[in-house]
């Protein structure tokens, strides 16, 4: 099991002096889904990029198993942290199983090709996400929902204990989105992965998140974190997103804020 933590993280918007986040401590818990919520431009993707080591935080540090992320060898980081970005544009055709097999890259040695263990990992990733029947398809002919599942299978093929997902449901219709979230939850609860996932749908964030991090998107880089139903309470959400929110029958309901 691997533990990813942020200590006193301060992040700035690219090429700007404005703070997105300041003084954020977080821990991506193993066996749980931590959701990341905040308005557009509040720094969700920037925070994920910092946790992955793609960008250095302006303040604070990212720790993997107690040691600074950058102190770990590149290959070890690649085996431990897996990322699903918001959008993936494929420049040319590629068979689905070859795409999923790219997830094995950090496990391959420079000279030898994939072995039986690699093939098994790809196979079980295809099965787990339910895309085994698509294996021979050209990934560019897939629907948005299918492609997102295939890309998630790519993460599973890496067998990384920490999964970082950037708005994985954005391109999906409600049915496919909920299927994907169920799958993500089972990856955390049943397979013991640590999942950190940003979501725009606040109600889903509340339902599928065990822990939550809320970025306020204010000038001070404010934030809150803790148990999902505490952090994502109607009062905070109303304030952060500038809407009217009520909680009825354990569901969040939103309406435009009444203007005077």
């Amino acid at each position: 099991m691997s533990e990813l933590r942020g200590e006193g993280l301060g992040l700035r918007a690219p090429k700007s002096e404005r703070w997105l986040v300041r003084g954020l401590d977080l821990r991506i818990a193993t066996g749980a889904v931590t959701v990341l919520v905040g308005p557009n431009g509040s720094g969700k993707t920037t925070l994920m990029r910092a946790l992955l080591g793609l960008t250095a935080p302006a303040q604070g540090r990212v720790l993997l198993d107690g040691a600074p992320l950058t102190a770990h060898p590149r290959r070890h980081r690649a085996r431990t942290l897996a990322w699903l970005p918001q959008r993936t544009a494929l420049p040319w055709g590629m068979a689905v199983e070859s795409l999923v097999a790219l997830g094995r890259t950090p496990h391959l040695s420079a000279l030898s090709g994939p072995g039986d263990g690699d093939r098994r990992a790809v196979e079980s990733a295809l099965e787990r996400v339910g895309v085994a029947h698509l294996r021979r398809r050209d990934a560019r002919t897939l629907s948005g929902g299918e492609l997102q599942r295939v890309l998630l299978a790519r993460l599973l093929a890496t067998e990384a204990p920490v999964l970082i997902l950037d708005e994985p449901t954005t391109a999906l219709d409600v049915g496919h989105a909920l299927d994907l979230l169920e799958l993500v939850r089972s990856l955390a609860h049943e397979s013991g992965r640590a999942v950190f996932m940003s979501l725009h749908e606040l109600d889903w964030a509340r339902r599928y998140g065990d822990q939550a991090v809320l970025l306020r998107g204010d000038a001070e880089g404010g934030h809150a974190s803790g148990a999902a139903d505490t952090v994502l309470d109607p009062e905070s959400l109303a304030q952060v997103f500038d809407v009217d929110v009520e909680l009825r029958e354990d569901r969040l309901r939103f309406s435009p804020r009444a203007r005077s």
Partner: peptide, 20 residues
């Protein structure tokens, strides 16, 4: 050949797979 394959996922995703 291998890093070029990984690059179809985009430069940043390739970086998370260890392609510098």
């Amino acid at each position: 050949h291998r890093p070029l394959d990984v690059l179809v996922l985009g430069e940043e995703t390739a970086a998370t797979l260890g392609v510098e």
